[in-house]
Structure formats: C-alpha cells, structure tokens
Amino acid sequence: MTSHAAAAEGHAHEHHYTTTGLDNRKVAIWSFIGSECMLFASLISTYLIYKGRSVVGPLPHETWTDPSTGAVFKPILNIPITSASTFVLLMSSLAMVLALAAVENKDKPLPANAGWWDRQLASSKLWLWCTCILGATFLGFQAFEFTSFVHEGLTLRRNLFGSSFFTLTGFHGAHVTVGVIWLGSLLAIDYKRGLRPSDTLMVDIAALYWHFVDVVWIAIFTLVYLIK
C-alpha cells in the first residue's frame, strides 16, 4: 500500500532494496502482531477457564452472598460504562486512520472547492490529537472501573475472577498506554518538524499496533463483559 509519494523524497535509509519490496519495519510489526495474538489468546483462555470457579465473590454477572457475614455482592461488571469506553476506543481507530491518510496525502493540494471539513481532514495533528485523547479517555474509564471494583471488594488477590480479570484487562490497558505514548511521540515529531508523506510508514506501523489493540478489545468486550 504505502507511499507512492514516499519514493519521491525523504531519508536515504528508507529506500533500502528489499526482496519483497516491503519495508522491514512493516514486516516486523506484522510478525509482532502475530505474536501478540498468542499472548492475548493465552490471557483470554485463562480468563475463560477460570470463569465460574471463584470460591468467593464479587462475581462478574452473578450476585454473591457471603455465607459467614451475609454481605451481598452485586454483579460487578458495569456494562453501560464499558460500552461507552468501547465506543471511545472504536472512535480512536477512526481518528487513527484519518491521521494516517492526512500524513500520506500531505503533499496533495486541496481542491479549489475544499470546504472546512476537507481542511480538517488534511490535518495530521488534529487526528493524532484525537487518537491520543480518545485513547487516554479509554484509560480513564479503565482507571475508574478498576478503582470502583476495588471499592466494591474486588482486588487482584480476592478471587480467581479478580486475578484473571485484572490481569487480562490490565495487559490490554498497558498496551493502550504504550500506544498513547507512541502516538504522542509521533505528535511531538509532527510539531517539531512536520510529518511528511515520507513518514507514512512510521505512522502506519503505529496505526497497525493501535488497531490491533482495538481488535483485542473487541474480543474482550464480548467474551468478558457481554457473555454471561
């Protein structure tokens, strides 16, 4: 795909001859994503295996009464909040593709009849900001979710559900955090020297990582939150 324009200019080291004609970094990031599939498959399997095996509550979808104290623990997952954060992450992926398109098309002049929206679409800074902010918002939702769970008595140590839930979603959150830092660095470069079409590949590999993290959340949202 990338960068028909990129061949025209840019840094010398981006023009290495390769067997497939593809950039090394892009081959590497796809290999990395393949590896990440196995990482998240292991985490999700463990969550699914331990579903329904906790000996004490709180539980994800069921009410649990402590037999010794009589304390009642309501189902802990908060579907409305998580639906909102899922939507936020989906929208961040939209912003990410628009950022990539903006970088790729930087050298194409806007048509004479270009409107306000066309000018916005051409702004890589705007869409990188949007992606970062949406990603950070997702993390905010997760921080809120984690703290409220702890208040309701669910910790890493409390039961199998707590251990496997916090580890799975925590690993995903850590990936989002890395993504936000990565995109933030791209934004810094954009402010420092401006991202050019020759930088498309650099943005593209960050975007692939970002979308993959989104895709993992699509699986987690269904398997952890919605299926009872």
Partner: peptide, 16 residues
C-alpha cells in the same frame, strides 16, 4: 503480588 492463578484452594486448576 498474591494473585490466585495457581492457588488450588482458591479454585485454580492445578493443570493450568
């Protein structure tokens, strides 16, 4: 950190 992944008394599977 005291999680329960391999704690059989907490319901963990000894074969995981």
């Amino acid at each position: 950190f005291g999680t329960n992944f391999y704690t059989v008394t907490a319901g963990a599977d000894p074969l995981l």
